[in-house]
């Protein structure tokens, strides 16, 4: 087998995913980037988007992350995600209803802090919805 990168996906609650992958494509703030073995060390922030894990020349797993950080070294790629979901398990109907619920909340929300939080949440869910299609 070809050289691999140790890919790790960590959420605050637990280590979600740890596997050797051929290539990982990560949604960086300045565009998606692919991580192959012996990639130059870098640290990047992430946008809401989809991580593609390539195995044997094809996409083995697609995971949605709601933002976070990626740390790449020559041998591994660590993603600290705020929230992660395997894309094929996403229930689009549920996401839709959650978005519309949040829109209603936004109308009622008075405090600026709440509004900002809800708006951010809607943005994430919309990205998830777009990715799931």
């Amino acid at each position: 087998m070809a050289e691999t990168t140790q890919f790790e996906l960590v959420s605050p609650e637990k280590l979600l995913y740890s596997e050797a992958a051929e290539m990982v494509v990560v949604p960086g703030t300045e565009g998606y980037f692919g991580v192959l073995p012996r990639h130059a060390p870098m640290i990047s922030t992430l946008e809401p988007g989809v991580i593609d894990i390539h195995q044997n020349g094809s996409v083995a797993e697609r995971i949605f992350v709601a933002g976070g950080f990626a740390e790449v070294t020559e041998t591994r790629c660590t993603v600290l995600a705020e929230e992660a979901q395997v894309l094929k398990d996403v229930d689009t109907a549920k996401v839709d209803s959650e978005i519309s619920d949040l829109r209603d909340d936004l109308k009622d929300a008075k405090e600026e802090l709440d509004r900002e939080r809800i708006e951010r949440r809607i943005k994430i869910l919309e990205a998830l919805r777009a990715a799931a299609d």
Binding site: G28, T29, E30, F33, A40, P41, M42, I43, S44, T45, F69, E71, T73, E74, T75
Partner: peptide
């Protein structure tokens, strides 16, 4: 020692 080099930052250190 692991990387042998300093990290690159994207967008940049301060933003991260």
């Amino acid at each position: 020692s692991e990387s042998g080099a300093l990290y690159e930052y994207e967008p940049d250190e301060e933003a991260i």
